[in-house]
């Protein structure tokens, strides 16, 4: 199994990265760069069952269990959403399913992005986090 960094350590790392930004626009500039860098999910994987429909933007999520760790790839039609996806994948990729299922992803609130995961924002991200956890739980049950 690929050794992965502690899930909380990665979150601490992201928090300290975001502490360097002076204002909101710098944070979003960074998120946009992350969004542009996110590896694009293969078109044939953008199927209905991988689609998480949000009121504002749409997210596609592909999940697989590889060598005991979860492997995620995702895409969105909105670039800021993609940037946040990039952060979520960075935290959760290669982690064991049981760790993903139980982690509270505290970094999101710490870096001030909790509004994007509020039910009212409805941009597919809350659905995506739920789906990432669900996929982890599903693979746990398959074991």
């Amino acid at each position: 199994m690929e050794t992965s960094m502690d899930i909380n350590k990665i979150q601490e790392e992201i928090i300290s990265e975001f502490e360097m930004f002076d204002d909101w626009m710098e944070k979003y500039e960074y998120l946009i760069e992350l969004g542009k860098d996110l590896p694009i999910i293969a078109e044939e994987l953008k199927t209905e069952d991988r689609l998480i429909e949000g009121c504002q933007s749409r997210v596609w999520l592909n999940a697989a269990l590889i060598d005991g760790g979860m492997s995620f790839s995702a895409d969105s039609d909105a670039i800021i959403t993609k940037g946040i996806i990039g952060l979520l994948i960075r935290v959760m990729n290669h982690q064991k399913p049981e760790i993903i299922a139980s982690n509270d992803l505290f970094f999101i609130k710490e870096i001030g992005l909790q509004e994007h995961l509020s039910p009212s924002r409805s941009n597919g991200l809350l659905g995506m986090v739920k789906r990432m956890k669900l996929e982890a739980i599903k693979s746990l049950n398959k074991k």
């Binding site: 909101w24 626009m25 979003y28 946009i32 504002q56 909105a78 670039i79 800021i80």
Partner: peptide, 13 residues
């Protein structure tokens, strides 16, 4: 460009 991205950046301003 997606309207969501534009709306989010306008909001932050």
């Amino acid at each position: 460009l997606h309207p969501f991205d534009i709306g989010t950046l306008l909001d932050k301003q």
